[in-house]
Write a protein that binds this DNA or RNA. Structure first.
Length: 491
RNA sequence: GGCCCCAUCGUCUAGGGGACCAGGACGCGGCCCUCUCAAGGCCGAAACGGGGGUUCGAAUCCCCCUGGGGCCA
């Protein structure tokens, strides 16, 4: 029994973003592969930016993706609480303990004084390291500084360290840090709040985390944390540093790159299984020369050692292609789900109001069936099928190309033919159109294209006869007549 | 500025000394299908950053450079 325990520790200072979701997914895949426990811990020590709304949104986004957790702020667990703001007593307790053992000491240096040190170091062309001036304060000096009203921060005593710090990263291999680059760093601020590196170590230890899997931006923090584990007499967990997902400009993916919040993709009508499948293809590749994988397959074949160390660039086009694959599958196997997805998007666009009635749902299902494989993401329903839900607006280029003196009489004749049709089904509709063209001795395309613009306003979209049938006789005839007049006016 | 990480087609990747004049996928181009678009099928262009080593043999191992990224300041 492996008893693997891992955690993902988001800060509720914003929505779950792509990079975070991806990292959490790999963490989760590893944990599920090892049959371990996946823990969610909320790092909300930055009280000014953390909100309950963001925390709730993050949990909601994980649920939507299908990433499940065994312990967390909502479900609790044996080593809680799972929010750092509720764990203050632990940080205080271990900080005090370290001071008592001499592993940490109070530092009274002011921000201004530290700035001075930095300036001096910079002027001398040397890297800045804390001078350690408070390391050996006498009781008298301390009392004097306290009397000045100064509140101390707490620093870890590390400067006397002589051995290298060896980090055996599960993805990167052995990474060595020289001790002389470390200084006595702050673990608790003068206001009593713990610093990230400190709270993190205390929590990971208390929560019995066996594997810390996180972004590579934390690799530089690792030696400091390892030193802290040593100072506390604890054994550090195994670590693995994932690469960072980059934007098209090779910079860390951020708001500048457009949509980075997971829920923005949800809003556009991306499917969670497509996103997960896409995630699996960044910095890793499952066994096999395929692109489509079930989550169960991913869990089975996931190995941290196979994860690449190079930073992948986020490629929305590939994600969209994958989504199309899953969308087609969903249309075949679970049309209701796609109906719900599209209904939400249509409602947001104002094309559908109020709760979806059974009739509307059924109609939307038919619309989706007609749009078919053109629907790559939910939002495409607007581009391909808005005319089913509102009046047509001609795309200027489309009207200019297809409405003219030649098409006007054809459109008019076709409107008449459809109005007279005994049965309004797609076979009859097609026969009617071909009949009109045969009589006028023109190729069917001479009417098909103008008719499409007349009915949809566009040059691209679903098959003409299918969409005409679904539009219904009344709207079809009406739109054709109006287009005929429009074309006549042009000519 | 210091430290650390990284480096195969435009992009995601396979490759872990001979199986590679480098495979798959997205995207791109062409053809087929076809009422448009999409989907699908077929074909095509497209990469081992540079330089030194090690070796009979390097995309694969080592070093340097270059380039990119991150952390700290």
């Amino acid at each position: 029994m492996s008893a693997v325990r891992t955690r993902y520790a988001p800060s509720p200072t914003g929505y779950l973003h792509i990079g975070g979701a991806w990292a959490a997914f790999f963490d989760w895949l590893f944990t599920r592969h090892e049959d371990g426990a996946f823990i969610l811990r909320i790092e909300d020590t930055d009280r000014s930016r953390s909100t309950q709304e963001f925390e709730a949104a993050i949990l909601e986004d994980f649920r939507w993706l299908g990433i499940t957790w065994d312990e967390g702020p909502d479900v609790g667990g044996p080593v809680g609480p799972y929010r750092q703001t509720e764990r203050a007593e632990f940080y205080t307790q271990y900080a005090r303990e370290m001071v008592e053992r001499g592993a940490a000491y109070p530092c009274y240096c002011s921000e201004a004084e530290l700035d001075q040190e930095r300036q001096t170091a910079r002027a001398a062309g040397k890297p800045y390291r804390y001078s350690g001036r408070c390391r050996t304060l006498t009781a008298q000096q301390t009392a004097a500084l306290e009397a000045e009203g100064r509140r101390p921060s707490l620093r870890l005593r590390v400067t006397n360290l002589s051995e290298q710090i060896v980090v055996d990263d599960l993805i990167r291999g052995r990474v060595i840090f020289e001790p002389e680059h470390l200084d006595d760093y702050i673990i608790v601020r003068s206001d009593g709040s713990p610093l990230y590196n400190f709270a993190n170590v205390v929590d990971d230890h208390l929560m019995e985390i066996t594997h810390v899997i996180r972004g590579s931006e934390h690799l530089s923090n690792t030696p400091r944390q390892f030193v802290m584990y040593r100072a506390l007499g604890w054994t550090p967990p195994a670590v693995a540093h994932l690469p960072t997902i980059l934007g098209q400009d090779r910079k860390k993916l951020s708001k500048r790159h457009g949509d980075t919040a997971l829920r923005e993709y949800k809003a556009q009508g991306y499917l969670p299984e497509a996103i997960l499948n896409f995630f699996a293809l960044m910095a890793w590749h499952p066994e096999g020369e395929r692109e489509i994988y079930e989550v169960s397959e991913l869990i089975r074949s996931f190995r941290l050692e196979d994860v690449g160390a190079a930073s992948p660039i986020f490629d929305v086009e590939k994600l969209t292609w994958l989504n199309g694959v899953y969308m087609r599958r969903a249309i075949d196997t679970d049309l209701d789900r796609v109906v719900d997805l599209c209904a939400g998007i249509l409602a947001r666009e104002g094309l559908l109001t109020g709760p979806l009635t059974p009739n509307q749902g059924q109609y939307l299902g038919q619309v989706i069936a007609v749009v078919g494989e053109r629907l790559k993401i939910g939002q495409d329903i607007i581009a391909y099928a808005d005319f089913f839900f509102r009046d047509v607006t001609y795309e200027p280029a489309a009207a200019a190309k297809h409405f003219n003196g030649a098409s006007a009489p054809l459109l008019d004749a076709y409107a008449g033919a459809l109005a007279a049709l005994p049965a309004f089904d797609r076979a009859s509709i097609e026969a009617a159109l071909r009949e009109v063209c045969a009589r006028a001795r023109v190729d069917a395309r001479a009417l098909i294209h103008p008719a499409r613009v007349a009915l949809t306003g566009k040059t691209a979209g679903p098959g003409l006869f299918e969409l005409t049938e679904l539009l219904g006789r009344e709207r079809a005839v009406d739109r054709l007549r109006r287009a005929a007049q429009h074309a006549q006016g042009v000519a």
